[in-house]
Design a protein around this nucleic acid. Sequence first.
DNA 1: CTGCAATTACTATACGGTTCAGTTCAGTTT
DNA 2: AAACTGAACTGAACCGTATAGTAATTGCAG
Lengths: 215, 215
Amino acid sequence: MPPADAGADAAGPSPRERRSQHKRQAVLDGARCEFLQHGYAATSMDRVAAAAGVSKATVYGHFADKQALFRALTEAMVGERLSELFGASAQQALPAEPAAALRELAGRCLECRHSQPQFLDFLRLVIAESERFPELAKTFLAQLERTGVGRVTALFEAITGAAEAELRARLFMGALVHLILMQDLLHGREVAPVDREAYAELLVRLVGAPPGAPG
Amino acid sequence: MPPADAGADAAGPSPRERRSQHKRQAVLDGARCEFLQHGYAATSMDRVAAAAGVSKATVYGHFADKQALFRALTEAMVGERLSELFGASAQQALPAEPAAALRELAGRCLECRHSQPQFLDFLRLVIAESERFPELAKTFLAQLERTGVGRVTALFEAITGAAEAELRARLFMGALVHLILMQDLLHGREVAPVDREAYAELLVRLVGAPPGAPG
DNA sequence: CTGCAATTACTATACGGTTCAGTTCAGTTT
DNA sequence: AAACTGAACTGAACCGTATAGTAATTGCAG
């Protein structure tokens, strides 16, 4: 009997389909490397195929055109990049005490240049193509809302009560992202270096202060 | 009396040179429009010439190549964009009371989408090309240090004393820039709108608090 | 001051050489 | 037979240069 069908029966995918999916993943990996390094317009499909170790015909066999490949790649990356910072497994390792959790989270974010070298290139790509591919930016922000702002808001609720917890969370994350952007993405380290630990400590102290502060 | 000379004596430039400089400015204006809209790689010199209302030979008469034109354009824009936000004339209009000055400054920054529509495109361009043109990013940051961080640091010194004034200034500006980036550049308004006034108010209250806050 | 050649900056067009997106096809692997 | 390879190919765009010609300005002779 020949292999019953190519659809989704009970057994796993046929070895042929496994191989095809493997090639597809190779294309995505090559595209990731090229797009992150050169941006959308300056990336050529020939180089993508070469980086993937695959013929150009194979690339077009899996993806309709350059835009489709780019969209598939970025959609796959959005969750991937953020879940390593804010995902469930990352949350488990946080201290129980909320203020300590904030400090730990700030430290992780400010070290993303080392822990997630691709994240900076991805951030640059999202911003660079935010007009040509607005869905990419929106998907990224929506995911950031769920994984980042949501969890940090919960922390601030535990500290300050419900008052302004969400705004405080946005402020907290904003100050962190800004430092990363200026120092790591725009080469601020070589222009005006900033003491990251002092920055994070002051941030936790000011934004994590109880609501009834003296005015 | 005929125009005295063609050199740089006492009279202004010769009419020929005036006309040439006018064309040069037209090229820069066309380049600004195209580069801000499409980014570096996706901008063609043919379209720059067309947008400038000028022949391509004129473009190459004034600028050696695409990179030289891009560098001349961005160098001209760095100071231009920032001085309208933090320049001397903008500083004069600030209230004398430091906390009020902070609020006013925050309000101005958060309205830059309306007051300076080109600023967002410029910011995106700086970030997008921060690897291909690192000098652009560094020049931008250096100017931001002088015009932005410097003045805001002075304000915080007046409020909290010398302690941590610079870090507070960075934190303050960071939170503002981040909101602009997410809401205006990445279309965050359509994903998760944020109350800008409440954000600014909370920011001033938290970061502008006196140093001996209760812990 | 007037008339005329030389010079300057520009325009329009087109070209060479390269690159790119996307297609096609004969052959190979599995 | 399905998926892939390698390579050639098309049509178009791009950068930068070159050419031929125009309009305005300048220097100079009469």
